[in-house]
């Protein structure tokens, strides 16, 4: 990978970042309503109090200065006070993000593996019973709303069979002084149901994309060449078809990784997982504006970063990108 390419992508990423921040800023200014009124419970009619409020929030400054302040606060993750927690937004949010990432780390690799392997198997048996079986199952799971699926899971394995806990991240009331074995065991037990439900909710799109690319690539001329060379079906698949089919699938996987951070709202809510998805739902309910804005910003940031990572990753998996 050339330095030129890297700096070009970096510039582009920076540009997108600035665009998103500006867009957010403008959007906020353009929103109907009086920000001061939005920020306080009582109607502020006293001009002095109003001026004080405006000063407090920097609304008395000219727009360009406001923008620079806004930019600075975004870069330093200074999102202000959460309405609902009465605490610094980022202090609250970073723990929630960590919790969501734990859930994501437990479920996403699982769904990627199921999706990619399942997609290869289905694609390689295109039109045969195995493919129809896998595809129908996947479509079924995919079509079912994830909260419903998670609910069924919760009811069967959590409530009826009692195999695993389904409430929170750790057993309520138990205190752990450090990250020790007992803590991890407790965490893993609590992870089981939400992680598996989450994986089930996610693997479908990976599988269908992988299967679709595999099927497409089976029809390519170079596959015929590979067979004519005397490679076995398995060698053709592993050396020629899968590496090509991984291109669109990688694209989709990396992009979806950006959204791990939002968590599966429904799954976090259902299993009372203290993650970011739940915080966002709560924030909508309680009109916790700073929290919502921060969450949106973090998501946008993740998407931008994922795009950048993808650009870099592609130079390794697709030689056609390298020449640029």
């Amino acid at each position: 990978m050339s330095l030129r390419y890297l700096s070009k992508r970096l510039m582009y990423t920076l540009f997108v970042f600035l665009f998103v921040v500006t867009f957010n800023f403008v959007l906020f200014r353009l929103m109907p309503g009086d920000p001061v009124a939005m920020l306080s419970k009582e109607i502020v009619s006293d001009p002095e109090a109003r001026a004080a409020m405006e000063k407090l929030y920097g609304l008395d400054k000219p727009l360009p200065i406001q923008f620079l302040n806004y930019l600075k606060s975004m870069i330093t993750f200074d999102f202000g006070q959460s309405f609902q927690y009465r605490e610094d937004v980022w202090t609250v949010l970073k723990d929630k993000i960590a919790n969501t990432l734990i859930l994501g780390a437990a479920s996403v690799p699982l769904s990627i593996i199921i999706g990619v392997v399942g997609g290869i198997i289905a694609g390689a048996h295109h039109g045969k019973k195995l493919d129809i079986g896998i595809t129908s199952f996947t479509m079924l799971v995919y079509a079912v709303p994830s909260f419903w699926l998670a609910m069924i899971f919760l009811l069967i394995f959590g409530v009826k069979l009692g195999w695993a806990p389904f409430n929170g991240m750790l057993t309520a009331g138990v205190q752990y002084n450090s990250v020790n074995w007992a803590y991890l065991k407790d965490l893993f037990r609590h992870l089981a149901l939400p992680a598996i439900s989450y994986a089930l909710a996610c693997f479908g799109s990976y599988l269908m994309i992988m299967r679709g690319s595999i099927v497409d690539i089976y029809g390519e001329d170079f596959v015929l060449t590979a067979r004519a060379k005397g490679l076995s079906e398995r060698q053709v698949r592993n050396r020629h078809i899968v590496p090509n089919a991984m291109l669109p699938t990688t694209n989709m996987i990396v992009m979806s990784l950006a959204f791990i951070i939002t968590g599966a709202f429904s799954i976090e809510v259902l299993f009372t997982w203290p993650g970011m998805g739940r915080v966002m739902v709560d924030s909508v309910m309680r009109r916790d504006y700073p929290m919502l804005q921060a969450s949106n910003y973090i998501i946008a940031l993740m998407v931008i970063i994922a795009n950048f990572v993808l650009d870099i990753l592609y130079t390794y998996i697709d030689p056609r990108v390298r020449v640029e």
């Binding site: 390519e220 001329d221 170079f222 015929l224 060449t225 590979a226 067979r227 004519a228 060379k229 005397g230 020629h240 590496p243 090509n244 291109l247 998996i317 697709d318 030689p319 056609r320």
Partner: peptide, 21 residues
């Protein structure tokens, strides 16, 4: 037998090679 005894040059010159190899 394939390729060692009889090899083939296919019709689609543009796509007969694996693009990522």
């Amino acid at each position: 037998f394939r390729w060692a005894q009889a090899s083939m040059i296919f019709q689609g010159a543009m796509n007969a090679l694996n693009p990522v190899q």
